[in-house]
Design a protein around this nucleic acid. Sequence first.
DNA 1: GATGCGATTGCCT
DNA 2: GGCAATCGCATCT
Length: 208
Amino acid sequence: MRPQVHPAFAPPLPRSFFERPTLQVARELLGCRLVRVLEPQEVPGGAEGPVVLVARLVEVEAYLGPADPASHAYRRTPRSAIMWGPPGRAYVYFSYGNHYCMNVVAEPEGVAGAVLLRAAEPLEGLEVMQKLRGTHDVRQLLRGPGRLTKALAVDRRFNGWDLTQPGPLYLAAGQPPARVATSPRIGIRRAADRPWRFFDPQSPFVSR
DNA sequence: GATGCGATTGCCT
DNA sequence: GGCAATCGCATCT
């Protein structure tokens, strides 16, 4: 029996993890941990010290470059340029006037690709996530890209953030799912036939 | 400067 | 299951 390592102390995934084909990165992100360290003033109602939130990714979607009509990188614009940038950075955008979506940039620099984080299982900091979301429904806490960002207090400030460094927001290794299921991506109209959604079929925390 | 709409959510029926 | 909310961005004029 080895001593249990606190999830928050798992080291960030290296840049080389993300510097690979987007579809491969997407599949292997399942089971990984998304770590968010809140400053006391970021905690609703306040806190004595920093609060660590940890979530296990159970559902993601791959968005490719100019060959993918559903991707923001279908055309290169000031907003989507980040998807051509260094891998392991966050791409966060505001959607439908009411929520944020978080992606992780993949592929080597110069090649566009990103993985949308769609759902996760809460592992640590459940109470604070519930406060940030304004609900006690654990199953719905991180189910959906907008809910996930709200529960982890991720917004525009993290657009371009380097997720391979320890700090307020990073990705770490975790327990991969026993199986990985695929399906078409959700909520898109163009290229809706491509099975680039990956999820843990045994997790009750996946969306839809 | 104006317009149309989206990688969604939450509320209402 | 239907639909309004809400605003940044891309794409026109």
